[in-house]
Design a protein around this nucleic acid. Sequence first.
DNA 1: GCCAACGTTGGC
DNA 2: GCCAACGTTGGC
Length: 155
Amino acid sequence: MRYWLMKSEPDVFGIDHLIEMPNQTEHWDGIRNYQARNFMRDDMKIGDQVLFYHSNAKKIGVVGTMEVVREAYPDHTQFDPNSKYHDPKSKEDNPRWIMVDIKFKEKFNDVVTLAELKEIPELSEMRLLQKGNRLSILPVEENEYQIIVELGRKK
DNA sequence: GCCAACGTTGGC
DNA sequence: GCCAACGTTGGC
């Protein structure tokens, strides 16, 4: 089993949106970065555990956890001319972009903020905290995942 | 709103 | 293949 962190802007799709979805499950569409896509396509498996991260928010940080419930399949928004994620270069018979399905697991009482994460020595190697990181999907080490979930549950 | 740090595009 | 110009992400 692997561990991941996935970013989303709460104004667009936050953890509360996920909680309100049918079966508390939603497809993670709109990924248009090749590295992030490759993580989803090649390495993300059913049962993988995921930290839900709010970016561009009043309170930036990890807000809860989710689980992968469906592995990579084509992201339909790439073929929709009305979608902001429309990609005219992507062909139906050879889709460029894919997505996975994610199910809600747990919401912390409060955000484990980015500032807090930066202060924890054990997390100093986290990819999330490295300079210049902009990937919206990142692998997380098991111990890093455990530390963050423990912090969240104490909130 | 600013801007650093990327990633992508396209001319050559 | 190089690289300038442009676009995006995301923290502050």
